[in-house]
Design a protein around this nucleic acid. Structure first.
Lengths: 338, 338
DNA sequence: CTGAAAGCGCTTACAG
DNA sequence: CTGAAAGCGCTTACAG
């Protein structure tokens, strides 16, 4: 049990050459059935496993993908946005299905991702997951492009290269939220979340939202808006600023569920009833959304599909196959908050 | 940019041997300062990174740890318990600090973890994280012991080998909860969660809870108890069963926060006010605990410290250094639910 | 269908 | 302080 068996040990016991063992173990069609089975039997008996490092070194391929999670230094201590955790789960599952190992790490904007993963042969490609200021982020993406790194990212579009991004149709999601609130008869709207190129996903949600309201004759200027990054506290602060302006508000669409949780908390403390006085909608459908009181209506992102597509597309890139830009259809989830 | 530089390229440019390059890059003290700096400069210029596979193969060490998350097949679809996600975050950070890569995967009880990670040289050791039925689980742990796998686990004790486990002092945590509820004057108690060797952590929390109540003259038999695994629905079902028995209950201690969320939902639906009619406490202090309405009083586990200790102990094991059994002190967090 | 041989890119005794 | 050489354990042309 102590000394690891090598392919030479198996070759000796099976009475064949080491090359044949290697072929047999990878089920090469060139190898005789009987030989193959004998080799497999002995390998099993010896608890033999191909040495990944030797195999990778020879093949110049690691069968490993790296997942880089953006750790937002401004967000609540050690709290990863639950939405990303859900993505992490689906990506882990997708990798396992495709016999890929998954290296997980937090991104530092300062790192050279290409060097850290591809140059060192730790991983064949990189999956980028995370918010943060997109304007800062874009530079890094451009660099990855220039270095011909194999990478895909969630949400944010790489300039002129939409094919590297998997994301929800955020604009459509914003539209769904707007239409739903309109159908309920709400008239005075607010949007909480960044609405600029610094947060492209939030911006698209905002645009879809205003599209819907505009179609009902409501001008964007009549929609209260306040920036917020995706944390509970940012949502709390933002809605207090909006309420202080004294404009009547009866429905708030939040750029993420975490923001919505903070918004609901603040409205509650300010003495407003949800949804009787003010309706609230979120975006993501994280677990907390159905635990909140009242339960939160939201736009669901299909994280399971997203994980599969990210991994599939990355593997295609690594294999030099063509990929296409993809938008995942968001889904309206109606609960108590509106 | 396309062809990766090797240590030979650097050697050529620096006018030294490849061995010297290797030494210089690892900052070996045997190497001349000036030579070292020249080598580093050229390496940087070429975007050189040591090939991990070659290096690992030669060193027979991967500087990689594997994190196996137990995926409970009975729990809500694709929902990892938020507590584990928080552990995942702290473990990721702890690994980064110690220059270890982290391979993440879901455990299958059927797999041969030793073979999958250590025999293949993918990882130097394994961190086990997860609930599930401990009686099934224990067999696997015994096998890992027999194979001399380098591993540590969270929560569950390995028979006769407490040193491989990092965990909270669950009994102490249960006691804190019991004493806190007693101090509030509650008299009729319930415990929701498995209380048997199938779930050692929950069992210890139960024991600490009964210790505290016994000290106040309340017999364990007078404490209502109903099994529940760590899901919202299990908590919901369990508390309904307890309430149906018709005994008066004014305080419920739940074995985990997720259970407590389900308990609060059910009590709310049954028309009970929390905490006016019935107080509720959880265990873990997951983010949801402070988002719930009312916010949930709970016993906090220090996941940040836990992650550090798991990684530290595993690295010690890998280096054949001594390790000691460790209990992390839990902390009472008082919120609105009691 | 099988074997002998080269080589992936490092690290580390060994010799000087 | 430096260099020449061996070898980690595989995969894969090449030859038969």
């Amino acid at each position: 049990m102590k000394d690891k068996a090598t392919s030479f040990d198996i070759a000796y016991l099976a009475g064949v050459s080491q090359s044949t063992v290697s072929r047999a173990l990878r089920n090469s069609p060139q190898v005789n059935n009987e030989t193959r089975e004998r080799v497999h039997a002995i390998a099993k008996q010896l608890n033999y496993k191909v040495d990944k490092n030797a195999s990778n070194l020879r093949k110049q391929r690691s069968s490993t993908l790296a997942l880089l999670l953006f750790e937002d230094p401004t967000s609540d201590e050690s709290l990863i946005n639950p939405f990303f955790l859900s993505m992490l789960g689906s990506i882990t599952r997708a990798c396992a299905k495709r016999s890929q190992d998954l290296l997980v790490s937090f991104q530092q904007l300062s790192d050279d991702w290409h060097a850290d993963y591809e140059d060192s042969n730790k991983a064949d490609g990189i999956i980028l997951l995370g918010y943060g200021d997109y304007v800062d982020y874009e530079e890094k993406l451009e660099k990855l492009l220039a270095q011909q790194t194999h990478f895909v990212c969630w949400g944010a579009e790489v300039h002129n290269h939409p094919e590297f991004t998997i994301r929800s149709n955020n604009r459509e999601g914003g539209r769904l939220a707007g239409e739903h609130l309109l159908a309920h008869g709400y008239k005075n709207f607010a949007f909480v979340g960044n609405a600029s190129e610094h947060s492209p996903e939030f911006f698209e949600r905002y645009q879809g939202f205003t599209d819907a309201l505009l179609a009902a004759g409501i001008q964007p200027d009549d929609i209260a808006q306040c920036d917020a990054i995706s944390t509970e506290n940012a949502g709390d602060n933002a809605i207090r600023q909006i309420m202080q302006q004294g404009k009547p508000i009866d429905a708030v669409f939040c750029a993420s569920d975490i923001i919505a949780i903070g918004v609901m908390r603040a409205l509650h403390q300010l003495g407003h009833k949800i949804p009787a006085d003010i309706a609230v909608m979120g975006f993501d459908d994280i677990p907390v959304a159905s635990f909140a009181t009242p339960t939160l209506s939201t736009i669901q992102q299909d994280t399971s599909l997203a994980g599969e597509m990210l991994v599939d597309n990355l593997l295609r890139l690594i294999n030099n196959e063509a990929i296409v830009s993809t938008h995942i259809q968001p889904k309206l989830i109606v609960r108590q908050s509106c």
